[in-house]
Simulated assay, not measured.
Amino acid sequence: MSARLSSIKTRTALRSSARVSADLLLVLVAAAVTLWVLGRMWSVVWPLMVGLFLTTLTWPLARFLRRHGWAPALAASTVTVLALAVGGGIVALIAVPVASQSGELTDGVVEGIQRLREWAAGPPLNIGDAQITEALDSAIARIQDSLGTTVSAVATGVGTVVNGVVTAVLAVFLMFFFLKDGPRFLPWLRRQLPGRLATDIPVVAERSWDTLGAFVRSQALVGLLDAVFIGLGLWVLGVPLVLPLAVLTFVSAFVPIIGALFAGFVAVLIALVSNGLTDALLVLAIIVVVQQLEGNVFQPMIQSRGLGLHAAVILLAVTLGGSLAGIVGSLLAVPVAALIAVLWNYVREQLGEPSQEPGAGAQPPGGTVTPA
């Protein structure tokens, strides 16, 4: 009798495992199809995502103007023009000098790597020239292997610039329409969806928007603080190329963990080449102190509600995004992982609570959006 019960339990467990495996397989297939469709529509998806990022940065000002009686179109137009003016000022005041010093920055990094090679060849490491030469030969071989791709990219540089301009123009127009009509979107979406979806999808969309806005605004402010403090430290020590290094620090803040390591590595190399080992160690100490302040002071103060992602998950997401889509993938990896976490948390909440039919007088979680 017990053997029969054990056999029944085994078959039941196998059937349950098979159903779970089939469900997971369907989810993976759906995810693969979604990624494939996004890849085919990338020329539209990329401006849309850039427009969303810009909207998260400019929406607080537009919301302030709307709350003080400004018409939606007027508020959106004013914020868009102001954003374009600020962007143009940044290009004129920062990007041009940075571009003029980019060659010096590259030469400094190369010379710093050469210094590290000479240091590694001496005590206490005593790495032989043959090993270093082998590693350099391997790196040169990889560069030569990718030479064809590089030449092709240079040959199509005009098309790349044109695509970049088109993307920027589309993103600005999308930002204007998001600022103007964004608050009307969720009520409209609720009216279009049937049944339970009329509650679930708008709630997930609203939470995703809040998470995306918190991430972009907090990373921008934290990156600005990092750039200011590290730039001041480099300026006090007399390290050259302060402005390009500060801009690199700010941009790298949008790639958590890996971006900070890369920007810090470049700053230490420049200090090593220009000022010597002592100042390089001081720059390293400044970077470590600023990063500690960022992790323990800046982010908790600026971002009161975190993304809910462990550092290991962020690191894996950035690595995966970079391997799949290069720099763009690294930039988008953490926001995408955070949005996936939002969806998972909502599904878990719904599975842990008794189901409730929409329209029964209950307020959907996450609050409501008042139509403009």
Score class of each variant (00 low, 15 high):
residue 2 S to A: 15
residue 6 S to V: 11
residue 6 S to C: 11
residue 8 I to C: 06
residue 12 T to S: 08
residue 15 R to D: 07
residue 29 V to R: 12
residue 32 A to L: 11
residue 32 A to G: 08
residue 37 V to F: 14
residue 37 V to I: 15
residue 38 L to M: 13
residue 42 W to P: 02
residue 45 V to Y: 11
residue 50 V to Y: 11
residue 52 L to W: 15
residue 54 L to R: 03
residue 56 T to D: 09
residue 57 L to A: 05
residue 57 L to W: 04
residue 58 T to Q: 07
residue 62 A to K: 04
residue 65 L to E: 10
residue 66 R to H: 09
residue 71 A to P: 01
residue 74 L to Q: 11
residue 81 V to I: 10
residue 82 L to Y: 00
residue 88 G to T: 14
residue 91 V to H: 15
residue 93 L to M: 10
residue 94 I to R: 00
residue 98 V to R: 03
residue 98 V to Q: 01
residue 113 I to H: 10
residue 115 R to S: 07
residue 115 R to H: 11
residue 116 L to D: 04
residue 116 L to N: 02
residue 120 A to Q: 12
residue 123 P to E: 06
residue 130 A to L: 09
residue 136 L to A: 11
residue 139 A to C: 07
residue 140 I to T: 11
residue 141 A to S: 10
residue 148 G to E: 10
residue 153 A to P: 06
residue 155 A to M: 12
residue 156 T to C: 04
residue 156 T to K: 14
residue 158 V to W: 10
residue 158 V to P: 00
residue 163 N to S: 10
residue 169 V to G: 04
residue 169 V to Q: 00
residue 170 L to A: 08
residue 176 F to D: 01
residue 180 K to E: 12
residue 185 F to C: 03
residue 185 F to P: 01
residue 189 L to W: 15
residue 190 R to H: 12
residue 193 L to S: 06
residue 194 P to H: 15
residue 197 L to R: 05
residue 199 T to Y: 09
residue 204 V to R: 02
residue 205 A to R: 00
residue 206 E to P: 02
residue 206 E to D: 11
residue 207 R to T: 07
residue 209 W to P: 00
residue 211 T to S: 09
residue 212 L to G: 02
residue 212 L to M: 10
residue 215 F to Y: 15
residue 217 R to E: 03
residue 222 V to D: 07
residue 225 L to N: 03
residue 228 V to H: 02
residue 229 F to T: 09
residue 230 I to M: 13
residue 234 L to T: 00
residue 234 L to Y: 07
residue 234 L to Q: 04
residue 242 V to D: 04
residue 245 L to K: 06
residue 246 A to C: 01
residue 246 A to R: 05
residue 248 L to S: 03
residue 248 L to M: 14
residue 249 T to E: 06
residue 251 V to T: 13
residue 252 S to C: 13
residue 253 A to N: 08
residue 254 F to G: 04
residue 257 I to K: 15
residue 258 I to H: 03
residue 259 G to E: 05
residue 262 F to M: 11
residue 265 F to K: 02
residue 265 F to S: 03
residue 268 V to N: 00
residue 268 V to A: 12
residue 269 L to N: 09
residue 270 I to F: 09
residue 271 A to D: 00
residue 271 A to Y: 01
residue 271 A to T: 03
residue 272 L to W: 14
residue 272 L to N: 07
residue 278 T to E: 04
residue 279 D to L: 14
residue 279 D to I: 14
residue 282 L to V: 08
residue 283 V to H: 05
residue 285 A to H: 14
residue 286 I to Q: 00
residue 287 I to F: 02
residue 296 N to T: 04
residue 297 V to Q: 12
residue 299 Q to P: 10
residue 299 Q to N: 13
residue 300 P to A: 07
residue 300 P to N: 08
residue 301 M to G: 00
residue 304 S to D: 08
residue 306 G to D: 00
residue 306 G to R: 01
residue 310 H to F: 01
residue 312 A to H: 12
residue 312 A to E: 08
residue 314 I to F: 09
residue 317 A to K: 01
residue 324 L to Q: 10
residue 330 S to N: 05
residue 331 L to V: 11
residue 334 V to H: 02
residue 335 P to V: 13
residue 336 V to A: 11
residue 339 L to C: 02
residue 342 V to N: 06
residue 345 N to H: 12
residue 349 E to Q: 12
residue 350 Q to F: 01
residue 354 P to T: 08
residue 354 P to Y: 03
residue 355 S to F: 07
residue 360 A to G: 13
residue 365 P to Y: 02
residue 367 G to C: 02
residue 368 T to P: 03
residue 369 V to K: 07
residue 370 T to M: 10
residue 370 T to V: 14
